[in-house]
Design a protein around this nucleic acid. Sequence first.
DNA 1: TGCGCCTCGCATACCGGGTATGCATACTCC
DNA 2: GGAGTATGCATACCCGGTATGCGAGGCGCA
Lengths: 192, 192
Amino acid sequence: MSIKYGLLALLQRGTMYGYQLRTSFEESTGGTWPLNIGQVYTTLSRLERDDLVRSLPEHDGGQRPYEITDAGRAELATWFATPIGRGDRPRDELAIKLALALTTPGVDVPGIIQAQRTATMRMLQEYTRMKQRTAGPADLSWRLVLESMIFQAEAEVRWLDHCEASLARHAPLPTPPPATAPETVHDKEKTA
Amino acid sequence: MSIKYGLLALLQRGTMYGYQLRTSFEESTGGTWPLNIGQVYTTLSRLERDDLVRSLPEHDGGQRPYEITDAGRAELATWFATPIGRGDRPRDELAIKLALALTTPGVDVPGIIQAQRTATMRMLQEYTRMKQRTAGPADLSWRLVLESMIFQAEAEVRWLDHCEASLARHAPLPTPPPATAPETVHDKEKTA
DNA sequence: TGCGCCTCGCATACCGGGTATGCATACTCC
DNA sequence: GGAGTATGCATACCCGGTATGCGAGGCGCA
């Protein structure tokens, strides 16, 4: 859904044709989310069908530039004005995975958490390295997108740690470390 | 992509038919991500086509239960063993929105940030209320999913605050508070 | 200078995920 | 006991995304 409004926002800056839209979109997000060229054309045709954009006569090189309409401008304004709600988010595959792993027999849940944690930490390091290479206010958009991913990854690591602790409380490992006693258990209603 | 493996995980616990799969999936995530019944059937037919599940003879009531195959068990095991990578995540609509708003003329970026911040805070309060209602280790999966969303929402609020600050540094507001001087500017290379 | 390969700009076909809709049975209430 | 309603199930259709097809222009080489 976001590419529809993304193209509208780009066309608000001026008329553009397909490939320009793709490159502009990818530039503003630093190539984080590559946009397929086919998707650009299908979205443009749908936008034209809904009278949100208008196609201009072909250029010399065969490029068909598009121009935003008044209805498109209005639609874009409402998108900008409306906050992203709860139902708009896609399913979190990691949360689903862990939730299902808990009730699936024969699954090493602590192992999954550990593996995911190292993977996320690696991503985090890569993001930080990218951020250090970014300099200058010209890339402000790109830096904000990058920092968004950094914040999310940090939250994911924190959540994984939390899961690990909460899991150790409720279902002690098959081979717990024998030397140290498990930390104080808070829940009173143990089922076993 | 996650529902394919979700159904496989549920079928690992035993044979089930369509509606059972849907209700079990929704139960384990506390109804956070409602699963459309149509999607269950199409996914089941694809899974059967790929020999990951096998359909059993119809029940009395007309329900067709499904059973996981050995190939399905292997596929599920690799899904559990492989961490979620960077490219698997969907586009973050909020990040795209802000990144594009920065370079679109006639957009009130601080207003967008403020509106999103209050909306996310409201979601956060709702999540916390839900969490307080959840008690007992029976809902462990559901509580972890809920906490995942809490952690993400908190990260989003932090990111929005960060954006606001970084934005105020780079592009001062059109109508700054006249009484107090803007805080120390760190960037040396102002373009203007 | 003419021929062929490659790259690039552009468009389309197909597939997977999701929602709305249709259909039959069971159940309830008058 | 019959109409209305809820539930279990299946299908049709729409939208987003990827892979593929297609033509024009650039460039090496004889």
